[in-house]
Amino acid sequence: MKIGFIGCGNMAKAMLKGIVSSKLIKKEEIIAADISMSMLEKVKEEMGINITNSNIEVAKGSQIIVLAVKPQYYSSVIKEIRDVINENTIVVSIAPGQTLEKLLKEFNKEVKIVRTMPNTPAMVLEGMTAACKNEFVTDEEMEYVCSLLNSFGKSAVVQEYMMDAVVAVSGSSPAYVYMFIEALADGACRGGLPRDMAYKFAAQAVLGSAKMVLETGAHPGALKDMVCSPGGTTIEAVAALESNGFRSAVIEAMKICEDKAKGM
Rank of each mutant, 00 (worst) to 15 (best):
P220C: 06
S151V: 02
D225Y: 07
Y178L: 09
A175Y: 10
I90R: 11
A165R: 03
V169N: 04
A237M: 08
I94Q: 04
L67S: 10
D34A: 11
G187F: 08
E106N: 04
L40G: 05
S21Q: 13
G191H: 14
V43E: 07
E126N: 13
V84K: 03
K79H: 12
V137H: 03
I35F: 12
M179R: 12
K109L: 02
L103E: 11
A237N: 06
V92P: 10
R115T: 00
L103W: 10
M123V: 14
Y176E: 04
Y74G: 00
A222V: 09
S36Y: 09
A222F: 07
I81R: 04
M226G: 00
K60T: 10
V137L: 05
E236I: 14
G171N: 08
V145G: 12
Q63M: 06
A33G: 07
L223M: 13
L207G: 02
C146R: 15
I35Y: 14
A12W: 10
G127R: 04
G48R: 01
M1K: 08
M163Q: 08
G127A: 03
L193K: 01
S172H: 10
F152G: 00
M179Y: 14
D164M: 06
P220H: 09
L100T: 00
L125K: 09
S21E: 15
K112N: 12
K2S: 07
N134Y: 07
I30R: 02
Y176H: 03
D139K: 14
V238C: 06
E182Y: 06
I90M: 12
M15N: 11
S248E: 13
C189Q: 15
E80R: 01
I94V: 15
R247I: 09
A249K: 05
I31L: 01
C8E: 05
K255A: 12
L16K: 09
F136K: 09
G18F: 03
A185N: 01
A205K: 03
M212F: 04
S75P: 00
C228A: 15
I30W: 01
V177L: 15
G153T: 04
F5C: 08
K260P: 00
G9T: 07
G9Q: 11
T52R: 13
N55L: 10
F5N: 04
L193Y: 02
P121R: 11
E87P: 02
E140M: 08
V77F: 05
